[in-house]
Simulated scan of single mutants.
Amino acid sequence: MSIIHFSRAFKALDHFVEQHNTTADSLSDRLRQSVIATAREIIRIYGASLLKESKKASFDAANIPSLKTNNVQLAKIARVSTRTKKTSY
């Protein structure tokens, strides 16, 4: 049972990025590929965690749990140091 429809989620992300980058005042305000790739990975991580949770008897599809992650996991995905500071998240 997949709770997240990945193709829809990725299309929505692409649409958001396109709209944001089109209206960004300057080049530095645009979302870069590394941020977009990290967002895609977060969607995949969330989908995997929801799949795991959905197998539990106490799972309620009406109240899906929030994503649980940490800076170490996100830094590994983004291929940056855990001490890298990003203000755009």
Rank of each mutant, 00 (worst) to 15 (best):
D14I: 02
D14L: 02
D14A: 11
D14R: 00
D14T: 03
H15M: 10
H15V: 11
H15P: 07
H15E: 15
F16K: 00
F16H: 11
V17L: 09
V17C: 09
V17W: 05
V17R: 02
V17S: 08
E18G: 10
E18A: 13
Q19A: 14
Q19P: 01
H20K: 08
H20S: 10
N21A: 07
N21G: 06
T22R: 12
T22Y: 06
T22N: 08
T22A: 11
T23D: 08
T23F: 10
T23M: 09
T23Q: 13
T23L: 12
A24S: 03
A24I: 00
A24T: 00
A24Y: 00
D25A: 09
D25V: 03
D25R: 01
S26W: 02
S26V: 08
S26A: 10
S26L: 06
L27H: 05
L27N: 05
L27C: 05
S28I: 08
S28E: 09
S28V: 09
D29L: 02
D29A: 06
D29Y: 03
R30C: 09
L31Y: 06
L31D: 00
L31M: 11
L31S: 07
R32T: 00
R32Y: 05
Q33C: 09
S34A: 08
S34N: 13
V35N: 10
V35Q: 13
V35M: 15
V35G: 09
V35T: 12
I36H: 01
A37N: 12
A37S: 13
A37D: 13
A37E: 07
T38P: 05
A39Q: 01
A39I: 00
R40G: 02
R40I: 01
R40T: 00
E41Y: 06
E41G: 11
E41N: 07
E41Q: 11
I42Y: 03
I42A: 14
I42W: 07
I42Q: 04
I42C: 10
I42R: 02
I43H: 03
I43Q: 01
I43T: 04
I43N: 02
I43M: 13
R44I: 03
I45E: 12
Y46A: 03
Y46K: 02
Y46S: 01
G47T: 00
G47D: 04
G47N: 09
A48P: 06
A48K: 11
A48L: 11
S49G: 11
S49W: 04
S49K: 06
S49T: 01
S49C: 08
L50M: 10
L51I: 14
L51D: 15
L51T: 13
L51K: 14
K52A: 15
K52R: 14
S54K: 05
S54M: 13
S54Y: 08
S54L: 14
K55P: 12
K55C: 15
K56W: 03
K56S: 15
K56D: 14
K56H: 10
K56P: 05
A57V: 13
A57K: 13
A57S: 15
S58N: 14
S58R: 12
S58A: 14
S58I: 07
S58L: 09
F59G: 02
F59A: 04
D60W: 00
D60P: 02
D60E: 07
